[in-house]
Design a binder for these strands. Structure first.
Lengths: 362, 362
DNA sequence: GTAACGATGGGATACGGTTTCCGCACCGGC
DNA sequence: GCCGGTGCGGAAACCGTATCCCATCGTTAC
């Protein structure tokens, strides 16, 4: 029995305890466990028995300190609630655990300061990559800060992956996994226009959010393509939530805005909008058509089922992790910025039951 | 310049690099950074400047190896998608980061083997606690395995927390945070019964899932209390998803089962059921009433808004972390099993628009 | 004026593994 | 029978940080 520590008591068994009890050296135990060195069957058997008896597990901190260790990927998100996030996270986590990697999550709560602190924390943890989810803010200072993060992470042998937002400007060592946001909005708006709608209430989201900007741009382009004048007065900005959809429609109704369709920036916004329309005695889609964006499960669970834009969120998560893993395997010497890969996945309209040609107005 | 490593190049700066460059000892740098030892202003200034210049961050692995380090809590869940989970996770993560703790997540995908492997992995990571989310399976072997996990974790100075499932049998060192599952079901069924419904289709969930068992038990008790015979033929088991709700109702309709209300095991199941009813030309709640369970955002976004049972998921997450944190601060000497705390949070019915007295049958 | 003391900084060691470098023993070949 | 090769196990040097113990210096008290 060791005199350093009562091996049967509390606390964690060390590799030394195992070695002592098995009557072998520490090095041998390590070799048996990692299996990257030839050991005799006899030794292996003896060591493994003690490992089981003591219920020994290696200390991950010590292991990573010594060079080994399982890679970890950090997922940063403003709000862990929210179906779109969940699917990206599922993709990342799934792909990570498939390779034996770990996933850390942190929430930023829309607070840039907190985001900064978290990235730093993750850097301390020595994560293989930091995956930043969701639309970015279009402030100069924000962009600069993010670029500094990217460099900093890169210098530490880690990597920044931006998911669902446009790439950073300049020569920054960050990978971007994005979807065709504007194209989806274009297609969605075109669908509405080709059904005959001309007066459309547009709820793109917060005006500083890059996602919202892209969706608005796509919609406007579609109007131009159809030769329909785009009325800025029909655009209401606000957060991506149920309440905003509800409030925006209610206010538009109160102000007697003339519209036959609602182009919502998000399925959840669409749900809120739908509720407000119903509350005002309007039928969907008979009186007003409505479309969403994201194609989260909610979209097909509403009544009527929502026509929306499908975004391959889970696949984006997988792609993000794949990018990091490839980079880590392939490029041992290509450090130093400048190789910001940029992936763009496609989107497409999912036609369901929330759109009809506009009714003749009374 | 150091001869061990080019300090300006790639790789991570160590505390030694900082010490060297600042012309002080390693110990001093450590003290300046941790701030738990008196240092002169002059020293602090010199060190901090170099820290900024080198963009130095401490190595978390080394730090935790040496005794310090930020605690980490592991969250294990079968499926990261799913609103109920998201809220618990939000609670855990929020409370964790409030204290400066980190959150690891892993998904088990309903695979007991994977769950085992994950718990072991987390044990290696030296997490402060493992939080297991969701209903447990009512197999003996499963219970035994979980008890072994609990012991194992406890021996390593960690702790197992079970959220949303009944406590383990016997004298196991695991904390349980649960909600009044059966009571909620009782109240929900009572609501239906007091509205006059007598023939109720019950979709409790998978029969081996403890959650489903509790909900079924609560419903049955309510029927007894109202003196209404409970017909086992009206109970359809299945997974907690949209498809099951849809299929169950469709089949019941096809088999011409006589019912005026649906008691769904989950809001999502209710959504599926509602869709199937609509597809058959039935109105909700005029023809058929329907209630859910969980009170996820979806419940209030459906049309009609769903009457359901509110479960304080986020608060449960917070409570779980609080339990761990308290235990870690308070009880340095109370290790060794036997103190399985058990918290039960209340539930209540949220009345919305999906229930009406039964229509007179044709 | 000197001894005791408080405030700081430095050196050394521990934390728990991995890995390199060595040595020992055993084997076959000449 | 001696020598070189091979296979396997041990000792020790790290990995990067926190902290204990001691040295030093300037003060304060007697």
């Amino acid at each position: 029995m060791s005199e350093r520590k009562a091996s049967g008591g509390a606390g964690r068994a060390t590799i030394r305890d195992v070695a002592e009890r098995a009557g072998v050296s520490v090095a041998s135990v390590s070799r048996v466990l990692s299996g990257n060195y030839p050991v005799s069957d006899e030794l292996r058997r003896r060591v493994m028995k003690v490992v089981r008896d003591l219920d020994y597990v290696t200390n991950a901190h010590a292991r990573s300190l010594a060079g080994g260790g399982t890679p970890t990927v950090a997922i940063l998100i403003n709000n862990i609630t929210g179906a779109a996030f969940a699917h990206v996270a599922k993709g990342v986590e799934g792909a990570a655990s498939l390779r034996g990697w770990l996933s850390l999550v942190g929430t930023t709560g829309d607070d840039p300061e907190r985001e900064l602190a978290l990235v730093n924390l993750m850097r301390q943890q020595g994560v293989a990559a930091v995956v930043l989810l969701g639309g970015a803010y279009d402030f100069d200072e924000y962009q600069l800060r993010m670029a500094r993060f990217a460099r900093s992470l890169d210098a530490a042998g880690s990597h920044l992956v931006l998911v669902g937002r446009p790439p950073l400007e300049g020569d920054v060592a960050a990978t971007t996994v994005d979807y065709d946001n504007e194209g989806g909005a274009y297609a969605m708006a075109s669908h509405l226009l080709s059904a005959g709608h001309r007066r459309v209430l547009v709820l793109p989201g917060h005006s500083e959010l890059t996602t919202a900007q892209g969706r608005l741009r796509g919609a406007r382009r579609a109007f131009e393509a159809y030769g329909v004048p785009f009325d800025p007065g029909m655009v209401l900005h606000g957060p991506y939530d149920y309440g905003h959809g509800y409030d925006a429609v209610e206010e538009s109704l109160r102000r007697e805005l003339d519209f036959t369709a609602v182009l919502a920036g998000t399925d959840v916004v669409a749900a809120g909008a739908m509720h407000a329309l119903r509350g005002a005695g309007l039928r969907v889609p008979e009186d007003i058509s409505i479309v969403g964006y994201d194609d989260i499960p909610l979209a097909s669970q509403l009544t009527p089922q929502l026509t929306t834009v499908h975004v391959p969120y889970e696949e984006m998560g997988r792609a993000a992790l794949r990018a990091v893993a490839d980079r880590r395997e392939g490029g041992a010497g290509r450090r130093g910025g400048g190789d910001g890969a940029h992936l763009v996945l496609g989107t497409h309209v999912v036609v369901r039951n929330s759109v009809q040609p506009p009714a003749r107005r009374s």
